[in-house]
């Protein structure tokens, strides 16, 4: 199913590219000056963010190499405070599409891991270290620091809340 979803996403990506090219062609036919203005804007944006993309590519390769599903599974079994810390770090450093992680998380659930920890892992995935250069390009370092810290705290609160809600329902 994950492979099917990946193939579907790839197709959607190509449709998106085709749609964008089509829109550009239509605009060029209707208003050439608007077309050239948008091409210049797009080119400037691409030139600005190419160095950032190179840094991201390197960071993603490194994290993808070290943070594997086996690494995450091993640390979900820790206990107490260490468990929370490892789940948050695992979530932050995990890479790849979310579809790749659902089967692993479902398997961990079958092994008795509480839903709250799974929720914390999923929430922590929202913090992307390799993408820091991009967010820093648009926002201040202070903003990124405060947002990241708030999201880490919120990931734990969500985990606790989900454990409580599901325990109460059971």
């Amino acid at each position: 199913m994950a492979r099917h979803n990946r193939a579907k996403r790839r197709n959607i990506s190509w449709f998106f590219v085709a749609a964008v090219i089509f829109i550009y062609v239509v605009i060029a036919c209707v208003d050439l000056s608007l077309f050239s203005k948008s091409v210049v804007l797009f080119s400037n944006l691409i030139i600005k963010i190419i160095p950032i993309f190179i840094i991201i590519y390197v960071l993603m390769t490194v994290t993808h190499y070290f943070i594997t599903p086996d690494f995450v599974t091993k640390h979900f079994i820790e206990s107490g405070m260490r468990k929370w810390i490892f789940i948050i770090i695992g979530g932050i450093l995990s890479t790849g599409p979310i579809y790749m992680w659902y089967p692993l998380l479902a398997d961990l659930r079958k092994r008795g891991i509480q839903y709250g920890y799974i929720a914390t892992f999923l929430y922590s995935r929202a913090i992307k270290v390799p993408l820091l250069p991009v967010i820093l390009f648009y926002f201040s370092a202070k903003y990124v620091f405060v947002l990241t810290a708030t999201m880490i705290i919120m990931s734990v609160l969500q985990g606790i809340a989900i454990n409580k809600i599901l325990q109460f329902e059971q």
């Binding site: 199913m1 979310i98 659902y102 998380l105 799974i118 599901l166 329902e169």
Partner: peptide
């Protein structure tokens, strides 16, 4: 991603997680 999440981790979990 909700449909896939609910298949893998139950509808209840996916609903609560996304709502929270």
């Amino acid at each position: 991603q909700f449909p896939f999440e609910s298949i893998m981790l139950t509808v209840k979990f996916a609903l609560i997680r996304n709502a929270t």
